[in-house]
């Protein structure tokens, strides 16, 4: 033992030293550091929980927002559609009105034209009768029975499809 250097004072010194080291490390290192690990663990857990909650909240809000956006979009679409419908209706109305007006104008115009043509035809007829009677009087050199000859010409005119309305009688 002596050759190995083992003796009681040194052994006791080493033992006391180890106990001191144990006490120091336990008091100053192990307890606070392990407590700090625990605190940090809790803190991280808390942070994670909070983050999870915030994430869930955000998702919820996003959903809500999406829903509202959807609603608004749908409303806007409906409004646009109804407006379009109204516009279409108005267009139809305007077109119909315009067509009506145009029809009216056309009818009016045709009536006038008809009237004028009839007038012209009747005038022409009259003149043709006058002229033919005048011509016939000149050829015959005497007076013609006014009423009878007039009837004759008129019949002729009717035969050649030149009626009072100017259209072919057969048509």
């Amino acid at each position: 033992m002596e050759k190995l250097g083992i003796n009681l004072p040194w052994l006791l010194a080493q033992l006391i030293n180890f106990i001191l080291v144990l006490v120091i490390l336990r008091m100053l290192v192990y307890k606070p550091v392990l407590a700090m690990f625990e605190t940090r663990k809790q803190k991280i857990q808390e942070s994670l929980d909070t983050a999870e909650k915030v994430k869930a909240d955000a998702a919820q809000q996003q959903k809500e927002f999406d829903r509202k956006l959807d609603d608004a979009r749908r409303e806007a679409q409906a409004a646009a559609a109804s407006a379009q419908q109204a516009a279409e209706k108005e267009r139809q109305r305007i077109i119909a009105e315009a067509q009506q007006d145009a029809e009216k104008i056309r009818v009016a115009a045709r009536g006038e034209l008809d009237y004028e043509r009839k007038q012209m035809v009747s005038e022409l007829r009259h003149q043709v009768i006058e002229l033919s009677m005048l011509g016939a009087q000149r050829v015959i050199g005497g007076n013609l029975d006014e009423r009878k000859s007039r009837q004759l010409v008129e019949n002729f005119l009717n035969e050649v499809d030149f009626g009072p309305n100017g259209q072919k009688a057969g048509a």
Binding site: Q14, N17, L20, V21, L25, L28, T39, R40
Partner: peptide
Amino acid sequence: TLLIVLVILLLVSFLGTRNMRI
């Protein structure tokens, strides 16, 4: 040397954990 080791351990553990932060 053992005494020096003890002092080193004491100093490091004191300074290292004096002001614990998260």
